[in-house]
Design a protein around this nucleic acid. Sequence first.
DNA 1: TATTGTTATACTCTATAACTATA
DNA 2: TATAGTTATAGAGTATAACAATA
Lengths: 137, 137
Amino acid sequence: MMRDPLIDLPGYALRRAATATSGELANLLKPLDLRLSEASALMLLGENPGLTSSRIGEVMGIQRANMVPFIARLEAAGLIERDPIDGRTQAILLTESGEAKRQEAHRIVNEYEQSLMDRVPAAHRDHLLPALRALWV
Amino acid sequence: MMRDPLIDLPGYALRRAATATSGELANLLKPLDLRLSEASALMLLGENPGLTSSRIGEVMGIQRANMVPFIARLEAAGLIERDPIDGRTQAILLTESGEAKRQEAHRIVNEYEQSLMDRVPAAHRDHLLPALRALWV
DNA sequence: TATTGTTATACTCTATAACTATA
DNA sequence: TATAGTTATAGAGTATAACAATA
């Protein structure tokens, strides 16, 4: 009854899939009062304590300028603390409550990621991640 | 030298791939003064003249409330016009200049989508779209 | 001179609630 | 009573330019 010229475009499908799944996971994280990007940062810091703000931004693809309110919110929530390295650089560390929050987030995220893969037909499943990596410069 | 626990998560890779590629295409469309979503709408209207605002929103996953400024901007740019169906419903039609813009956008988008697929290793290429469709509810 | 963190600002996309006019 | 379009508003992510303090 109508022809949709968009659904055959991989880039369009990529955007739709990303916004749909991001919204789902964001809702699962809402009870923790964590945004998606914040949960990601906690997980990154869990494996790499003491990263600087700039370095976190590089890894996660967030610009330095945008890291300022980002880190400030995590600090205000008591999840991280800053440990000065020298006069201009600060190591970011999880607080005790940040580590607890990280564990909760980790469980929710991993469970969701598993459910995502379950939704992908088995024949395509192993191809998804490598294909995505090729697009994500 | 650092372990990134995020890059193995398909949902995370999906977001990164989507934002990276969306940004690239958005830049290609900037000379046309078209946003990504606007180019998509023009392409949709090209195949389906006379869709209502609500219907466009349903197909593209944009909420009714957000369609108002969206359609208003396209109208202000002279790319579409509204043709009242009854007292509360209006068909959206491409103007002549909207159709011209649609053709330009179509060329740029299709070229970019092709380049996207070229970036995906051949072994994974045919799996990408079906995998994405399974995630995009 | 280059880098880290910062301020200020703007734009795009998404989300929610509630209103109006009409079917 | 349900629907199409609308208003208002907020939040999240991204982008750019410019600055201060420090290395």
